[in-house]
């Protein structure tokens, strides 16, 4: 089980607000899973490289040039708040 402070710290890093009930719930759940994954420590991996799954013929360099998305208004339709072709946010600076 994780401590309340540990859960709050992770939530802060993950930018998640949690209710009191959720804090308790995640103390239990995260604690259980972290205990379970401890089993990996039994494996010696000092000489093991990390996995590679990307096909060898996949990655290739290309010219770095911007490709404008055609319709900005179309994108702004999904915005929670917008004004004059821009996303609207609460004031950041005083």
């Amino acid at each position: 089980m994780l401590s309340r402070d540990e859960v709050l710290k992770i939530a802060r890093l993950a930018k998640l607000s949690l209710t009191e009930k959720e804090i308790e719930f995640y103390q239990q759940r995260l604690g259980r899973i972290l205990t379970y994954v401890e089993e990996l420590n039994a494996l010696a991996t000092a000489d093991t490289s990390v996995v590679r799954t990307i096909p060898k013929d996949a990655v290739a360099f290309r010219e770095d040039r911007p490709i404008p998305f055609g319709d900005v208004r179309e994108l702004l339709k999904n915005a929670p708040a917008s004004e004059a072709d821009s996303f609207l946010l609460p004031q950041v600076m005083e």
Binding site: V7, I10, A11, L13, A14, K15, L16, S17, L18, E22, F25, Y26, R29, L30, I33, L34, L89, P90, V92
Partner: peptide, 26 residues
Amino acid sequence: LDDLYCRSRGEGFGPEVKLRIMLGTY
């Protein structure tokens, strides 16, 4: 702005998604 991030995510994601985000963040 920080409150916007945290509460939008806290209220918008369901319990399993939040669990996995936190596990991954950790």
